[in-house]
Simulated assay, not measured.
Amino acid sequence: MSTASVMLAAPSGLLSLALFAVGVALVAMLCGAFWLGARIKMREPPCPRPDEQPHLPPEGAVHEILENREPEEVPKVGKKGHALTPYELTNMQTRHSDSKKRRRWSPGSSGSFGGGGLGAH
């Protein structure tokens, strides 16, 4: 064995030792993460028992209701008043509409905000 081959073999041995140490550290971190996750899981409340699960109401399953809704009007501001900001508006609710006619998009419009296209032809 020559001196050149010994010098070439020395760094590779050190490199393999460093890779082995990195591998051991990675396995230790994964084991620590698993242990920490198990501790957190043990502190959580248990899953609900079958008798604690939600049940259907006595009248049976709730079915879909098809109705028309209309929005509440935006409050009007006087001529001398300032424009309302979104923070001054309340949570805009909807109410039941007596009209049975479904709203449709106007002909010739795309129906989407800012669509910019020609829409329906």
Rank of each mutant, 00 (worst) to 15 (best):
A21I: 02
M42H: 14
H96N: 11
R39Q: 08
L118H: 10
D51I: 13
L30S: 06
L30M: 05
S5M: 08
L8P: 14
P50K: 05
S109T: 15
A120L: 10
E73Q: 07
P75H: 00
I40Q: 04
T90E: 12
S99C: 00
M29N: 15
S112F: 07
S110M: 06
P54T: 00
A25V: 02
P71C: 03
F113V: 10
S99Q: 00
R103C: 04
M7A: 11
Y87H: 06
R95M: 04
E67D: 11
S5R: 05
P71F: 09
G60L: 00
T3C: 11
G78I: 11
A83E: 08
P71W: 09
E73H: 04
V77F: 01
L26N: 06
E72H: 06
I65P: 01
I65S: 06
A120C: 11
S12Y: 09
G115K: 00
P107H: 05
I40G: 10
A18E: 03
A83G: 09
M1T: 15
P71Y: 08
A83L: 06
L14K: 11
T85C: 09
P71R: 12
S109N: 09
I65L: 07
A10R: 14
S2L: 06
P46G: 02
M1G: 15
A28L: 10
G108V: 03
L19V: 11
L36N: 12
V77Y: 02
L118P: 15
M42G: 15
H63P: 09
P71Q: 08
P50A: 11
L118I: 13
E64A: 13
S106F: 06
A4Q: 12
S12Q: 07
R69Q: 07
V62L: 04
G23D: 02
Q53T: 15
P107I: 04
D98G: 14
I40R: 04
P45E: 01
G78R: 02
P45F: 01
A21G: 07
H55D: 09
A18L: 09
S99N: 04
F34W: 08
K101L: 05
R103D: 04
V22K: 10
G13V: 03
K101P: 00
V27E: 12
P107R: 13
L36P: 15
V27W: 14
P48Q: 00
A4P: 07
S16D: 10
E72Y: 02
C47V: 12
R43V: 08
P107D: 14
P71E: 05
I40E: 10
E52K: 03
G60M: 01
V27H: 13
N91Q: 13
M92F: 02
V77C: 06
S12W: 10
P107Y: 02
K100Q: 04
R102Q: 03
R95T: 12
L19D: 06
L30W: 04
L56F: 10
L17S: 13
P50E: 03
G115H: 00
W105K: 07
E70Y: 12
F34N: 06
L8V: 15
K79P: 10
W105Y: 06
A9D: 08
P75W: 01
N68C: 03
S110N: 11
A25P: 03
A38F: 04
L89E: 00
P107C: 05
M7K: 13
P58M: 14
P75R: 00
V77H: 04
K41H: 08
